[in-house]
Amino acid sequence: MCFLQRSEASPRREAAGNRGAKDLRPSSGCAQAFFEREELHIQELAQQVVSGLATGSIFASLALALVLIYRSMDVINFAQGELAMFTTFIAWQFTEQGMPLWAAFAATMAISFAGAVALERIVIRPIERAPQLTIVIVTLGLLIIFNGLAGWIWGYELKSFPSPFPTAPIHAGNVTFSSQDLGVIGVTLAALLLIYLFFSRTKLGLAMRAAALYPAESRVLGIPQGWMLALGWGLAAVMGTLSGLMVAPIVFLDPNMMQSIVVYAFAAAVLGGIDSPVGAVVGGLVLGVTLNLLGTYVDFIGTDLRLPVAFAIIVGVLVVRPSGMFGHRRLTRV
């Protein structure tokens, strides 16, 4: 997960350094040295892939949040990242007051769910039938409000956020993985599984899918459109909060923490297909791994050019295949 870290050292260079040091060891023959180096390459690759999957799952959570709202309202909630940042601050506040970390996480999830439902009912409901542009502008307004509010309440200096995962690395054979990376992947996958089960196995989840895809038809079946929308906001906020809680220990907490993450999440959602939840997850993981590998093995990209790469992916996908990997092509009759 190196590239989310605010460190100047390039992982590529470090890795190269290590390799150099190992190469200096006397070896019995050329062949052995070759194989050792080969193995090191694979170990490094494995680490970078896992690290990429970890960042990717953070993108995936937030991308899924964007997709959940896009599916039901046809708009991107530009405030999604800031909402996640805000709720992460709430979790931080809880831990500062001595609440155990996981309890603070659970409480924060509950608050973000209820808060987002209320936000939808109070702010979005009155403009539900307004043109999409109106809703977009309102979400941009929310972005600014929550950013300012967080700065006003908690200030702009960087705060370190406790990690819920152990610091000791985990060894699997010759490869060493960070517990942080594996923890992030594990927690995200668990959350995604829960969301999947909710949407595929429960009546409420099914009703939410129907309401998003077929608003008029599902109203006829007695499904309250407005409340399904509000629940969608709640779930999206929970997924966003998850991404905030997972990323905060890595990048430090501040009111602008999510601003680049939300761009990556948007890139992930577009890559996967903006109306596809599966696409958001796959897109997030693919993006995380790709960016990590590009940053590690392509020197000129390093840590600085990753955000432009994300933008390039957005533009590229929109030009070549607007429906992304899993999205549906929309046909409009003229």
Partner: peptide, 19 residues
């Protein structure tokens, strides 16, 4: 007919019983 085309027949029927 208000078919929820992307959902399965079973899901369509299940949603009929939403109330």
């Amino acid at each position: 007919r208000g078919t929820l085309a992307a959902l399965t027949v079973r899901e369509n029927l299940a949603l009929g019983a939403f109330t």
